[in-house]
């Protein structure tokens, strides 16, 4: 015990002026880190290697949930499994029947596009990924999935769930990726109203069930219940996937724009399985030249990804 007391007293005068200098140095380096991390991709390597170090921690945290799922799958009765197979089979038949119609429509669409000399739509490849049950910062809507570089995921990759557009990847490490949901306050994606073709931007509000549609004129032809799909203009999200449904449309003549809110189709707070999407490369030379060539160079603005 005596020895312990001596050890406890020792620190009194050992700590001197060095702390202030060290603090100044560390503050400067964190400011540098933040500036570089905010603007460039140089730090992705460091983040990846740290992410591999903390992967076991994340797995440990997610373990009760994954073990619970595993037990649930393995302990279901034969009866309920048979029922589930039945319902899945009937659902499968239904989806296949729908698919037949879709295939013929797609062929028709390609033929019509050929006639019009328009560029063909690009194909897409998907990979299923699962959410890892860990909580990230509650004020930015991000989730962690179990696919990364190793599965060819890349930064800024679109992610869908069964119902619609889910989000995009913002940090990719070899085995995991962080997805920013479309409801994150710093996320926005270019969309189109299905009924009228009106193009706009769906920005996250910070609430899981609300997106705001920006810059819509007061006299726009919009109705509550209209569906909104991705327009593919930003170059991140492929065209034509459902994004949201309009829930409120307030036009106030004293304001320059109407206030329009929509609720996301994707089940942002409930989906456990999501799809990573790869777009196959477009052939740019097939696109017919624009009728007016502007002198500014690239007229298409990248607006879809505002990731920090």
């Amino acid at each position: 015990m005596f020895e312990y007391e001596v050890l406890a007293i020792k620190p009194l005068f050992a700590y001197g002026q060095a702390a202030g200098i060290r603090l100044a140095f560390l503050l400067a380096s964190s400011i540098g880190l933040m500036a570089v991390d905010h603007k460039y991709d140089y730090l992705d390597g460091i983040r990846s290697s740290l992410a591999i170090l903390i992967y076991p921690v994340q797995q440990m945290v997610a373990f009760p949930v994954s073990a619970g799922n595993w037990m649930g799958e393995n302990l279901t009765s034969r009866d309920s499994l048979l029922k589930k197979i039945d319902s899945l089979e009937s659902q499968n038949v239904f989806l296949k029947a729908q698919m037949q119609k879709y295939t013929s429509l797609e062929i028709e669409n390609m033929r019509l596009r050929d006639l019009l000399d328009a560029a063909e739509r690009t194909g897409e490849k998907v990979l299923a990924a699962e959410l890892i049950a860990v909580d990230l910062d509650p004020f930015s809507h991000k989730v962690l999935i179990n696919k990364g570089n190793r599965h060819n995921a890349f930064k800024g990759q679109p992610v869908l769930d069964a119902e619609g557009v889910f989000g995009q990847t913002v940090h990719v490490t070899p085995i995991t990726s962080v997805i920013m949901l479309i409801s994150d306050p710093s996320h926005a994606l270019p969309v189109q109203i299905d009924r009228t073709g009106l193009r706009t931007i769906a920005a996250g509000t910070g609430a899981m069930d609300k997106l705001e549609l920006l810059h819509i004129p007061n006299n726009a032809d919009l109705k509550v219940g209209d569906t909104v799909s991705s327009s593919g203009l930003g170059g991140v999200f492929p065209q034509g996937y459902p994004v949201a449904e309009i829930i409120s449309f307030e036009s106030d003549p004293t304001q320059p724009y109407a206030r329009v809110f929509a609720t996301p189709k994707a089940r942002l707070d409930r989906s456990r399985e999501v799809l990573l999407v790869w777009r196959e490369k477009t052939k740019i030379e097939e696109v017919p030249p624009a009728p007016q060539v502007s002198k500014k160079g690239n007229p298409k603005q990248e607006v879809s990804a505002l990731a920090p």
């Binding site: 503050l27 964190s30 400011i31 933040m34 991390d37 170090l53 903390i54 994340q58 860990v134 910062d137």
Partner: peptide, 22 residues
Amino acid sequence: IVDVLNGSLLGQHAMAYAVIAY
């Protein structure tokens, strides 16, 4: 490490924790 865990900007928690430690 907390920044990597949270997926936040690399350095923001580092800065805050260094200050409160000081």
